[in-house]
Amino acid sequence: MGKCSKDKRDLYYRKAKEQGWRARSAFKLLQLDSEFHFLDNISRVVDLCAAPGSWSQVLSRRLASGPNAATIVSVDLQPIAPLPGVITLQADITHPSTLTNILKLFGGEPADFVCSDGAPDVTGLHDLDEYIQGQLILSALTLATSLLREGGTFVAKIFRGRDVDLLYSQLALLFDHVTCAKPRSSRASSLEAFVVCEGYRPRPGWQPESLQLKDTKVPQDLSIASMDQSERAIASFIACGDLSDYDADATYQLEQGVQAVSLDPVQKPTAPPYKTALEKKRAGTLR
């Protein structure tokens, strides 16, 4: 989050700065929890694709202090600025050593809660974007299946596109309850929603490999019929957050005088890959 005119437009954006959150997405986890209470009484927590760390911040404020302080591990390829009571790991979630490292931090005990707010570089080709997001969820889920205790919870960001029903049916094989939840702080105009998977309990005979697309068996039946048989399911939908909460689609008129104050960002934005291109654009050398 930078220091920009968005302050005037997006209320959650401004509220996040006021309350010291690194990103407005903190409200999404807070609102999800207010509905599902998945952060109550848990002691081992993993936040995947955590940078810049707003979900970890929520976890830190909720769980890191007190006599029953939880162990919180945040993983991302990008560095995450330190947070009280949070162990940050700069690692690839698809790498086997990441699993070992997390379990080591938990003293070999399984996790109660695994979450991921990760999203890919959205291109605008909806099919591809939904696929890549699906891959990210499957990577997080693969790790989660090795980390979660029975009955544990998994929460991840999804895009509700054309094949979201395939994902729901896969998740239903692993969890007692799968819900599609949309916090009020997420705009209705965005495809974004969250799957809240409660009660980790893989069906008997379920193999972790079934999440893999890397099927190297040959020869293979390539007919489209094999695709059509894929199971589809619709997860029940829950809107989260109090109706009296602010609404991400609404426009709020700021109180007099407030508008003039531009708040400093809680944390400097991480350098995007196109930083050099932007600098050249500003300098007028890009044409």
């Binding site: 697309l213 190297t216 040959v218």
Partner: peptide, 22 residues
Amino acid sequence: VTAHNLLLQISIDCKQLEKVFS
């Protein structure tokens, strides 16, 4: 080439996946 860096060889009659290289 798949999105997970595998090279798939299709049979000459274009009906089968013949080989997978990684």
